[in-house]
């Protein structure tokens, strides 16, 4: 395949950046999208040009590191991570536009690499059960209905890639935050801190500069792990019932 790549290049966070066009040839359909980027970078290195920087690691769709905005969609045309996107999804002669995630809370560091530490801070605000190592009950002393465990697992599958934020016109992090709030609200282990968790995580999400949710559902449509919008509904319920009876006035 012969392709034209329009890629966002930005030297660092202070640089304004802009698109640069690169022709590329000899791409096979079996290559993954990132392997195509590897080929481009080898060619650029050959020509003494700075390779395109992008985040990636496991290349099997689970670490959540890769984060390309391809032809106007996070992770490209399929509902998967960029690393699992293969060139068979494109045709010979295509022009492909590649950008970084765009959100105030995800500043660009270089080229296609963004800073997603805001997600870590949301988890630090309360995305856990406060138990220390040791001294916990036997695992089977906490029976959990299978349906509940399955629902919790559905929410827990979030890989923290940020596609939901990139897909949202408001750059809202509701899907990400609600996935963790839901997982722990559904499980007996999460009950004790249920209220404070919802309050604190939502407060942190707002403090990071993520936008509000207007229920367009773009996040769910683009989530590579199929995290459901119902988690947002659940978080809203959790949040409202928490603030109504809050002791943290």
């Amino acid at each position: 395949m012969k392709l034209t790549l329009k890629i966002w290049r930005q030297k660092n966070s202070a640089d304004t950046g802009g698109f640069v066009t690169y022709p590329i040839d000899g791409i096979s359909k079996d290559m993954s999208f990132l392997e195509m980027m590897d080929v481009l970078n080898e060619e650029l290195t050959e020509k003494n040009q700075d390779p395109v920087h992008f985040d990636h690691d496991c290349r099997e769709g689970i670490c959540g590191t890769c984060s390309l905005y391809i032809d106007g969609k996070p992770h490209g045309p399929l509902q998967t991570t960029t690393c699992q996107l293969h060139m068979r999804s494109f045709s010979d002669g295509d022009t492909i536009t590649i950008e970084p995630w765009r959100a105030k809370a995800f500043p660009v560091l270089k080229d296609l690499v963004v800073d997603r530490s805001s997600f870590d801070r949301i988890i630090q605000a309360g995305g856990y059960v406060s138990v220390n190592t040791g001294g916990v009950p036997d695992a089977n002393e906490i029976p959990i209905p299978k349906t509940m465990a399955d629902l919790a697992m559905d929410a827990a599958q979030c890989i923290g890639c940020g596609a939901c934020v990139a897909a949202c016109k408001n750059a809202s992090a509701m899907l990400f935050t609600s996935a963790k709030v839901s997982q722990l609200a559904l499980l007996p282990q999460g009950q004790i801190e249920r209220k404070t968790r919802a309050e604190k995580m939502v407060a942190q999400m707002d403090a990071e500069g993520f936008g509000a949710c207007t229920n367009t559902g773009a996040c769910e449509a683009e989530c590579p792990k199929g995290i459901s919008l119902t988690n947002i509904a659940r978080m809203n319920r959790e949040y409202f019932s928490a603030v109504m009876s809050s002791e943290n006035m």
């Binding site: 059960v129 138990v131 916990v136 695992a139 959990i144 465990a149 919790a152 697992m153 997982q183």
Partner: peptide, 12 residues
């Protein structure tokens, strides 16, 4: 035991 207490959703 530890992982279950943390809320790890093991298969049931």
């Amino acid at each position: 035991d530890q992982c279950v207490a943390q809320g790890v959703p093991f298969a049931r």
